[in-house]
Amino acid sequence: MITIVCGHYGSGKTNFALNLALRRRAGGGEMTLVDLDIVNPYFRSSDYARFLEEKGVRLIAPGTAGTTLDAPALTPGIGAAIGGGGDVIIDAGGDDAGAAALGRFAGEICARGYEMLYVVNRFRIQTAAPADAAALLGEIEAASGLKATAIVNNSHLSGLTAPADILDGLAYAKAVAGLTGLPLFASTVPAALAGAPELAGYDLFPVEILVKLPWN
């Protein structure tokens, strides 16, 4: 299975992709995470190479990632992973600019079959309106040559996230799903909040906060 994680930059794609990779790896089988971000040199999957290796997740990253080189080059290992047999999660770059690199592999990805998860966060200012989030998806699909198959609601306010914000995000995600005609794949909740009584009865996807700042 090929799973693509795409979305607005800053929507939490990388943190979600890391969590999804770890969860699926824990379920058995090989797991490869491809860092396909050729836009942003900061806060990306390849910063977690050693951590992923310890957890048994194979990482494929551009040769320049983490080197301070600003060179948007793709490594041949990406094509091999996509063409191989194992499970692959692709952490795409933000917006249409980041998704453009997917277009290079669109033929191979389509040939193998894929799911493309569109990550949204109701608290990101440029996609705070469901219509803006839906419009951005159109741009990502046009740039990548691929179609999203489901929405991932990753609405949060970082360290200030409260249960009410999670519920607020659910309504938003339903609106985005309605506008795009896509099902909701998952709605995330920071693992520390997962047991909150306000959230009892909701089917949420707990995520560990793996993408951290140096002082956290």
Binding site: Y9, G10, N121, F123, R124, I125, Q126, A128, H156, L157, S158, L160
Partner: peptide
């Protein structure tokens, strides 16, 4: 007034 999640660069621009 909105409570949102922003990148520093975006926040500088909007401000």
């Amino acid at each position: 007034a909105q409570r949102v999640l922003m990148k520093g660069n975006e926040a500088l621009a909007q401000a």
